[in-house]
Amino acid sequence: MSDVTIEPLYDYPERERVLALAAEHAEAVDTGERSPFENLREIAKDGLLTLGRTGSLVPQTAVAYDLASQDASTGFSLWAHRSTIAFFDAVGRELPEGLAEATTSGTTAMAAAYKEAAGIGPIKVLGTLVEGGVKLNGTISWASNLYPNGVIVLPVAVQNALQGHSDRYIVTVRQDVPGLKIAYHRNLLALNGTESGTLTFEDVFVPTEDILTEDFPGFLAKVTAPFLLVQSAFCLGLAAGALQSAAGHLQVSGGIFKQEFEGLIERYRTLRATLLRLAAEPEHAQKRELLQLRLDVSHLATTATHFELQTVGGIGYVAGSPTARRVREATFLPVQSPTEGHLRYELAKFENAAGSPIQETAAAAS
């Protein structure tokens, strides 16, 4: 079965160039010798960071998938950057200069928003209304694509003194804004090139014009589909890369792995079909399906990378090998927001809804 080719997510004119670019620089990105944003700037020249801003999201998910099949760091960076673009689209704002071209980086610092909406954790950046805007204090434990002058989008809990409760805002800041400190996370198992770190806000001033919206649930409803679909595509691409590698080693140990491989291929095809269906009409995607897909593709990526290691053998255990890199990359998926625990918690709520029909969609308030 060495001639097995894993069916790609979707074909597009620039696909071979995208695959070649990611493959050529995968090792350099993994070792920190090259930034994944160098790759993103290259594909941005063909408009591949702004696909699906209206209508079908399939072409954009395909780019994320293809990048991740060769280099998960670049696939992940594309997801975070493309999510930032979706945030501005959701509120009808023009994109900040350089975002479409990746000369300005986009950072999604939205994990706390989704956790609070799900009821599993508070927003830890607090806002105080001041003349001309809002002042921020607090922390965000993890954000990525943290490059100089980059655009960051985050949720803020703003105390409403008149009504005695906190309002939820979505705001944008620049990385270089006074009062924002970044502690970068180094020596990660993988994805070191993604420039991830903890953000600390100390009296950071956000002018009124940089408050993107005060409609917290409405905003989440609009961005959930692109957020999870491009993320799911990056996970599925990682799985596909592992399965393609494993396909060349199925004769080992008397072919004992062939039946297991066929089972993994069937799972891959099912999830591929689900991703394509949901991405074709993201505005109609049900939240439950989006969450389940994200959980399932992360499980497949974990299983597929370990399967690759089993079939490739000892050479895959060499730290610098593509096999070892994919195994390390897959270990990130359970902790990537939404985390394994977050996904399972929200899906359990659907299961415990006493069998009532699922009405919630990505276009309805979450």
Rank of each mutant, 00 (worst) to 15 (best):
M1L: 13
I6Y: 00
P8N: 11
P8L: 10
L9N: 08
L9K: 08
Y10A: 13
R15P: 05
E16R: 14
L19Q: 13
V29H: 09
D30A: 15
R41V: 08
T61W: 01
V63M: 04
V63Q: 06
D66F: 00
D66A: 15
D66Y: 00
T74F: 04
S83C: 06
T84A: 13
F87M: 12
F88H: 15
E94T: 12
E101Y: 08
G106K: 13
G106I: 14
T108M: 14
A113R: 05
P122K: 13
I123Y: 09
L126N: 11
V134Q: 02
L136M: 08
T139P: 00
W142M: 11
S144N: 14
P148N: 07
V156N: 01
H165Q: 11
D167T: 04
I170D: 02
V171A: 13
V173P: 04
V173F: 01
V177S: 13
L180R: 12
Y184T: 08
N192A: 07
F201L: 02
E202N: 13
D215L: 08
F216G: 09
P217W: 06
L220P: 09
A221L: 03
A221C: 04
K222T: 14
V230F: 00
Q231T: 05
G237P: 12
A239I: 06
A240M: 06
G241P: 12
G255L: 02
I265Y: 00
R267T: 12
R269E: 11
A273C: 03
L275K: 09
L275N: 10
L276S: 06
A285D: 06
D296V: 00
V297T: 14
H299E: 14
H299P: 00
A304N: 08
F307P: 04
I315C: 03
Y317H: 14
G320D: 12
P322Y: 02
E329C: 04
A330P: 03
T331Q: 04
T339F: 02
L343G: 05
Q359S: 11
A364H: 13
